[in-house]
Design a binder for these strands. Structure first.
Lengths: 206, 206
DNA sequence: GTCTATACAACGATAGAC
DNA sequence: GTCTATCGTTGTATAGAC
């Protein structure tokens, strides 16, 4: 035995180099990340603690995911990375930001048929973990990536309001599948929802 | 014997009067209603079929619930009956309809702390039944009770859009509990969300 | 005895077949 | 247009619990 040393201090030096085999470092990291992010939130969860829980070296986070934040969105396991979608959308006319966001989201969601979204919802309902992760996503990605650059006025409130509209839209269209929204084309949805989303982004707030 | 002629031809007449005991007709009806409503939708589910599945007389639907529609909302087992909430809200200035709806909804939801809402969501995610029921709710109660009287223009689309905003708000506030929305007071939420909801109700649509 | 959950029959409305 | 089937609902008599 004795192949892998414990992670703490007073142990024999860890083996270097590639692990024997089978041990899926990436998956272990993802599992550990989901647990730790959920327990302590994004800021409270350190890469070191996550790596320790996974039984691997902290450097593996960078090797497999490219950093703490990419690990976080990977742990969310959302259909397509929202951070990049939102990141791309911010460039351009701020008055049409909602329109661009909705177009991209609909494309991505439609491509998976909403199946992944339903799965995400199920895990949210059953475990607290996924709920905590999604909460962190709204609080961090939405606020940090989009709202800060666009609306310095109450970005947190704006972000959560945007979250209600985006999540509700996805839920009613892809999980509940209520007509006529479920089979409405993108143009209809965008022109119907974008003005409301835009108001949350940059419009007047009480 | 020989009191009543058999209803059909060759069947012994069912026993009349109070059942021996323990047999909970009300619960049986609710279970049967959930199943049949989910299988065939509101219109497709007949009172007779539901009663048959429950093993009781169709008149029991009226006796216990007062009709088919009250049975339906009882089967939904939502936190507070939305049909009455929405029914009360429609009377008054149509331009402040969203405001009235949101105020009432927040009161009701806050009183239960969102616990029932989380439970509902869980059953939606796991079973198809609850999802079908909620879909029927949006399609029927929302459209029939509110939108038809307020916006003759595309009431179905308006109803589903309203559904996205209301459901998303409830989910982010009560299940996800994202700040600052989770602990925002009613006035803030109403003044933030009501204009958007009002646009879905009576505003211009593409 | 009273009270009430139950079963049965029948009514008006409505939709579809012919 | 008429006929029929079926729907939701209502009225009423009955049997068991109390």
């Amino acid at each position: 035995m004795g192949i892998v040393a414990a992670a703490d201090e007073n142990t024999a030096p860890r083996r270097r180099g590639r692990r024997p085999g089978g041990a899926d470092t990436r998956t272990s990291l993802l599992d550990a990340a989901r647990a730790v992010f959920a327990e302590r939130g994004y800021d409270g969860a350190t890469v070191r603690v996550i790596a320790e829980r996974a039984g691997v070296d902290p450097a593996m986070v960078n090797h497999w995911f490219g950093g703490k934040e990419p690990l976080f969105v990977a742990a969310l396991n959302l259909p397509a990375d929202p951070a990049t979608i939102l990141g791309e959308a911010v460039s351009g006319d701020p008055d049409e930001l909602a329109e661009r966001i909705l177009c991209r989201l609909l494309e991505v969601w439609d491509s998976t048929g909403g199946a992944q979204f339903a799965a995400l919802l199920q895990s949210i309902a059953t475990q607290d973990v996924a709920a905590a992760l999604l909460r962190e996503f709204i609080a961090r990605v939405l606020v940090g990536k989009v709202l800060r650059e666009v609306a310095p006025d109450r970005p947190e409130l704006r972000a959560t309001l945007c979250g209600t509209q985006m999540f509700g839209l996805a839920f009613v269209r892809y999980v509940l599948k209520v007509e006529p929204l479920a089979s409405a084309d993108h143009a209809t949805i965008v022109s119907a929802v974008a003005p409301n989303l835009q108001r949350y982004l940059t419009g007047p707030l009480p």
